[in-house]
Simulated scan of single mutants.
Amino acid sequence: MNPVIVVHGGGASNISKDRKERVRQGIIRAATEGYKILKDGGSAVDAVEGAVTVLEDDPEFNAGCGSVLNVNGDVEMDASIMNGKDLSAGAVSAARGIANPIKLARLVMERTTHCFLTDQGAAKFAAAMGVPTVPQEQLVTERNLKRLEKEKHEKGAFKSDCEKNLGTVGAVALDHNGNVAYATSTGGIVNKMVGRVGDTPCIGSGGYADNNIGAISTTGHGESILKVNLARLTLFHVEQGKTLEEAADLSLGYMKAKLKGLGGLILVSKAGDWAVKWTSASMPWAAAKDGQLHSGIDLDETSVANLP
């Protein structure tokens, strides 16, 4: 199989021109890193973890360093990863003081008999696995301190949670052996309740991977995505013979009509086709296949470049 990777940087709106360029470069770096892993013979799981790690380390994105803050001004992060070869999966929620929750999610997948660890249990497991902790301040950005202050001030005055454009990062990949995988990571929603868990760590909502169908990673309003099981719903439509674009339009359209929930998703099929779709204002994304890198942020905006 010709390897493929697609990454997304979550929903976005009103991005300033300078920030838009930083976001674009960040998403391109993540896709390039993931594609390099695939070209060097790495697995789909290696590639999605590598790409998402790049985004978690980039303060422009709502994951890892750059995560939004909860009501107490703290960072609580969620992440999940899945291997389409055997449906093995790992997830963490309410993770604190860890630079790369996606790496911890992979350890849950590969080093435990469980799928999902949360809060103190996730912290104890991370310590047992030798995962280094980082000070809370290292994960908090000035931009997110201002966002929390603004959200507390405006609560109830503007758009509902369903209508906000919300951030998550994710990746899907197909490797040389025909295996697919997904990874998704987020800091959640600004001003969320302590302990709130969204769709990102929930298998079937924040993402899904099955070699018989393909892989998907989602972004958007977590509560809406959870209620419709967005990831698995989209892959169900693919199983029923819909194209990737049709499947994405059907599931995102259903979520918007039923719940007014906005979102986006990236998909790769078992044959190596890929798609990106969203109903939010915009969604930073990039896809690498056959030595070419496709990327965009706004609707009807795609640039193509040759990869080195």
Results as ranks from 00 to 15, higher is better:
M1S: 15
H8W: 04
G9L: 05
S16F: 06
R19L: 07
K20R: 14
E21T: 08
V23A: 01
I37R: 00
D40R: 08
S43E: 09
D46Q: 03
A51T: 01
V52M: 02
L55D: 04
E56V: 00
F61Y: 15
M77S: 10
A79I: 03
L87V: 02
V92T: 08
S93M: 13
A95I: 15
G97S: 15
I98L: 15
A99Q: 14
P101A: 01
I102T: 00
K103E: 02
K103H: 06
A105W: 01
A126D: 12
M129W: 07
V134P: 14
P135T: 07
Q136G: 10
H153S: 09
F158S: 13
C162Y: 10
H176C: 12
A181V: 06
G187N: 11
K192S: 11
P201G: 03
P201F: 05
C202R: 05
C202E: 04
S205C: 14
G207R: 00
G207D: 00
Y208E: 06
A209C: 11
N211I: 08
N211H: 10
N212I: 08
S217P: 03
T219H: 03
I225S: 04
V228R: 03
A231M: 11
H237N: 11
V238G: 04
K242R: 15
L252V: 08
V268E: 01
K270W: 06
A271S: 13
D273H: 12
T279R: 04
S282K: 06
M283S: 01
W285S: 03
A286S: 08
D298C: 01
D300C: 12
E301M: 01
T302E: 14
S303E: 12
